[in-house]
Nucleic acid binder design. Structure first.
Ligand SMILES: [Mn+2]
Ligand SMILES: [Mn+2]
Ligand SMILES: [Zn+2]
Ligand SMILES: [Zn+2]
Lengths: 144, 144
DNA sequence: AATTATCTTGGAATGATTCTAATCCTCACT
DNA sequence: AGTGAGGATTAGAATCATTCCAAGATAATT
């Protein structure tokens, strides 16, 4: 069963932990990320809110602010490909990203146990990495 | 001993292979990358030329054009961190990048034999990756 | 020499993101 | 209920790396 994290319920608690308020806009933005696991851009989050929830009043500036807040609270990770617009991912487990160039879509690749440790072990002495990012680029079959 | 690639001599041949001319500007830009293995940005390449080789006439637009050409010829790789300016790397061997956050410097990490194959093996069936990018972020000791 | 294709260049345009300054809310306290 | 202090949202301006464009060199071909 999934942690309380990666659910709308976890949001208020995490925000409170940082002395921040669970505003309507923050809930809406986080909700969009949880429901659309497509690694959307800020623009895409904004467009989605405009079309699917026209009653929610959220400006572009606020989408950026909310996304930034969620990142600070460690509820969301930023993902960058080349110089494209930043994408946002609510999957908190360590994972790699696969960028399908044919469809220009991105999806998560779970990491087998021990892989991160093994990657760290290739570092020369004296290197202390606090994060590793793995990005595959290619074509993922029809069944994924 | 290093291949003819990663030397100034390889440039003319590679350019010719694409029907391109070995112009002064292309030689200068490639030379800067070969001599400064710092993963410089376009701006830094430009500034370096201006200060160290004032006689060479190279504009900013041309720095961008030359770098793009070198990338197309597979003589240079682009490297991106977050949304920072694109950096350029003339190391053609497969390697990972280590971003030292303390000094904001980047350096290459050689990959042990078999690691790339192993990484590809974690992909679910149907996935065909034609490149993998590995980026460490952290602090590298005083001796590196 | 004329023609053609390739290159370089200054400056304008682009586009994602950040900044700014004003307004709006929420809540605690009188 | 009324007030004040932070916190939050917002429109629009500013930033900045990069790309685009149109004009002027340069070099290769006829
Ligand atoms: Mn990236
Ligand atoms: Mn990147
Ligand atoms: Zn992800
Ligand atoms: Zn490199």
């Amino acid at each position: 069963m999934r942690n309380v994290l990666e659910t709308p319920e976890g949001l208020a608690e995490r925000l409170a932990h940082s002395g921040l308020r669970p505003t309507e806009q923050r809930k809406v933005v986080y909700g969009v990320l949880l429901k659309n696991r497509n690694h959307p851009t800020a623009d895409e989050v904004f467009a989605h809110i405009r079309s699917e929830m026209p009653s929610a009043a959220v400006s572009m500036a606020t989408v950026y602010n909310c996304l930034e807040t969620l990142v600070q609270c460690n509820l969301v990770r930023q993902v960058n490909f080349e110089r494209g617009p930043t994408r946002y991912c609510p999957n908190l487990r360590p994972h790699a990203h696969f960028h399908d160039e044919a469809t220009d879509t991105i999806h998560d690749i779970e990491l087998p146990a021990g892989l991160l440790e093994q990657l760290h072990s290739i570092l020369p002495p004296g290197h202390q990495a606090n994060s590793v990012e793995i990005i595959f680029r290619g074509k993922s079959g029809p069944s994924s």
